Amino acid sequence: MTPQIQTTTQAVDQVFFLIFGISVVMLIGIAAVMVYFTVRYHHRRHPQPTSQVRSHLLLEITWTVLPTILVMAMFYYGWAGYLALRNVPEGAMEVKAVARMWSWTFEYENGRASERLYVPAGRPVKVHLVSEDVLHSFYVPAFRIKRDMVPGMDNYVWFIAPAPGSYHIFCAEYCGTGHADMITSVEALPPEDFTAWLAEAKDQAPDAVELLRRHGCLGCHSLDGSRMAGPSFKGLYGREKRVLSEGRERTLVVDAEYLRRSILQPKTDVVVGYPPIMPDYEGRIPEDELDAMVEFLRTLE
Results as ranks from 00 to 15, higher is better:
117 L>D: 09
83 L>R: 13
233 F>V: 00
193 D>K: 11
226 S>K: 02
260 R>Y: 08
288 D>I: 10
249 E>W: 11
183 I>E: 06
245 S>E: 01
289 E>V: 11
43 H>A: 13
118 Y>N: 12
75 F>M: 15
156 Y>E: 00
87 N>C: 10
74 M>L: 06
282 E>Q: 15
180 A>S: 14
190 P>I: 03
294 V>G: 06
266 P>K: 00
75 F>N: 13
113 A>I: 07
42 H>P: 08
72 M>D: 11
293 M>G: 03
132 E>D: 05
111 G>P: 06
222 S>Q: 00
114 S>N: 08
192 E>I: 10
236 L>K: 07
53 V>N: 11
108 Y>I: 10
271 V>Y: 05
164 P>A: 08
231 P>F: 01
262 S>G: 02
149 M>S: 00
300 L>S: 09
58 L>P: 11
66 L>T: 10
174 Y>K: 12
67 P>T: 02
277 I>T: 12
170 F>I: 09
246 E>M: 13
272 V>I: 06
243 V>M: 07
48 Q>F: 15
9 T>D: 05
221 H>D: 03
265 Q>H: 13
100 R>T: 14
184 T>K: 07
93 M>T: 10
17 F>N: 00
184 T>W: 06
101 M>G: 12
162 P>S: 03
213 R>W: 06
173 E>I: 13
78 G>P: 05
260 R>F: 09
3 P>H: 01
266 P>R: 01
131 S>H: 02
206 P>L: 08
147 R>S: 14
249 E>G: 12
64 T>F: 13
7 T>E: 02
257 E>A: 15
77 Y>G: 10
220 C>L: 07
260 R>G: 06
296 F>A: 04
122 G>P: 03
118 Y>I: 12
120 P>K: 07
282 E>I: 11
205 A>Y: 13
240 E>I: 08
220 C>H: 02
28 I>Y: 12
23 S>Q: 01
174 Y>M: 12
276 P>C: 02
14 Q>C: 08
99 A>V: 04
188 A>Y: 08
291 D>T: 13
283 G>T: 08
235 G>Q: 01
271 V>C: 08
87 N>R: 13
210 E>R: 14
171 C>R: 06
210 E>P: 04
294 V>D: 06
102 W>T: 11
11 A>I: 02
70 L>M: 09
56 H>I: 13
16 F>C: 02
278 M>K: 04
278 M>C: 05
152 G>D: 03
276 P>A: 01
288 D>P: 10
44 R>P: 00
61 I>T: 05
234 K>V: 03
115 E>R: 15
150 V>E: 02
73 A>E: 00
99 A>R: 04
116 R>E: 09
33 V>P: 10
104 W>Q: 00
2 T>K: 15
76 Y>I: 13
75 F>Q: 14
114 S>K: 02
152 G>S: 01
70 L>Y: 05
133 D>A: 04
64 T>C: 14
